[in-house]
């Protein structure tokens, strides 16, 4: 196991979540979701803890983390861009919006720009379906985003 350099309170929060899920192997994906919620990403140390708590191999945890694109091992950028991929947003063209962000920033989902400014991730429904497609940058929410709007959104943070 690695020497843990994560904030102790957050580690405790993660351990509590594992306990809440009864340390069930079958809850791995849910636990990882919660862990990403706490830390913003899933560094090796976090995967180690999850493996230990659920009594599965770290290799298996890593296998699951790399299988699903909504898990990321890179810390988010200063301006984390999230594109909702819930059903409502998806049918209203979220994917085209995502593609535009990827193109303009030259990043893939889960990546962070070299200068640490931007990162792109995808979310499940954020509960603002009336505004679909929805994009968030940090705390700020953008509704009814069209691919043509993307350039302007990025410019706000440059």
């Amino acid at each position: 196991m690695a020497d843990i350099k994560l904030p102790a309170n957050k580690v405790q929060e993660l351990r509590d979540i594992c306990a809440k899920f009864n340390h069930e192997k079958g809850e791995l994906i849910n636990v990882l979701h919660a862990a990403q919620g706490i830390f913003g990403y899933l560094p090796a140390e976090v995967q180690d803890i999850v493996a230990e708590e659920l009594n599965v191999s770290v290799a298996h945890v890593y296998g699951v983390v790399t299988f699903y694109s909504f898990f990321t091992m890179t810390p988010k950028g200063k301006y984390p861009i999230s594109i909702c991929m819930g059903t409502a947003c998806y049918v209203r063209g979220a994917e085209k919006v995502l593609d535009e962000f990827k193109r303009l920033l030259d990043l893939k989902v889960g990546e962070t720009s070299a200068n640490g400014d931007f990162s792109i991730s995808c979310l499940r429904c954020v509960g603002a379906c009336g505004l679909a497609p929805v994009v968030t940058v940090g705390e700020k929410v953008y509704g009814r985003v069209a691919p043509e709007d993307v350039k302007g959104i990025i410019a706000e943070y440059k």
């Binding site: 191999s57 770290v58 290799a59 298996h60 890593y62 790399t66 299988f67």
Partner: peptide, 8 residues
């Protein structure tokens, strides 16, 4: 438990 399938 050293090995696991990764990515997809």
């Amino acid at each position: 438990g050293t090995l696991s399938a990764i990515y997809r």
